[in-house]
Simulated scan of single mutants.
Amino acid sequence: MTKTALIVIDVQRGFESPTLGRRNNPDCETNVRALLDGWLDAGQPVVLVRHDSVSPDSVLAPGQPGNAFKPELDGVRPDLLVPKSVHSAFHGEVDLHAWLTRHGIRDLVVCGIQTNRCVETTSRVGGDLGYRVRVALDATHTFDEQAPDGTVVTAEEFTRATATNLHGHFAEVTTTAAVLAALQGAGS
Rank of each mutant, 00 (worst) to 15 (best):
A89Q: 06
G63Y: 03
L80G: 11
V46D: 01
S17A: 15
K70P: 01
E29H: 12
A5F: 10
L40Y: 03
A171S: 05
V135E: 00
G92K: 09
T154C: 00
R134Q: 15
F90N: 03
P26D: 15
E172Q: 06
K3C: 02
M1A: 14
G43Y: 11
G185L: 10
H87K: 07
S58G: 10
Q184V: 14
E156Q: 14
C118G: 08
C111L: 01
V153C: 01
D74M: 01
G92E: 07
L73P: 10
V8F: 03
N25E: 04
N31A: 08
T4D: 06
V110S: 01
V47M: 11
G185A: 15
V153Y: 00
K70H: 08
P62S: 11
G66Y: 08
F170K: 05
S188I: 09
F69K: 00
T19C: 03
V152H: 00
N25L: 06
D37I: 11
A181S: 13
A42N: 09
V47S: 11
G168F: 09
P45M: 05
V153A: 00
T142M: 00
P56I: 02
S188D: 11
A178M: 09
N25K: 07
A42G: 08
D41V: 11
H103Q: 13
V86Q: 13
E172I: 05
N116D: 15
G168S: 08
A177C: 07
D138F: 02
L73M: 13
E120R: 15
T162W: 10
A177H: 13
T164A: 15
D138P: 01
D107T: 14
D74W: 00
V94I: 14
P65W: 11
P148K: 07
H167S: 13
R117G: 12
N25W: 08
V109R: 00
T176C: 13
R13Y: 01
G127R: 05
G75L: 10
F158I: 06
T174F: 11
L81T: 15
W39E: 07
R117T: 11
N31K: 12
L6F: 13
A155D: 02
S88D: 09
L137R: 10
D144M: 01
V119T: 09
G126M: 05
A98S: 14
D95W: 07
S85R: 11
V46S: 02
E157W: 09
V54D: 14
H87T: 07
H97T: 10
P26R: 04
L180P: 02
G168Q: 06
K3F: 04
A42I: 10
V133R: 00
N25Q: 08
D41F: 04
R117F: 12
H103M: 07
A147F: 08
I9R: 00
A182P: 04
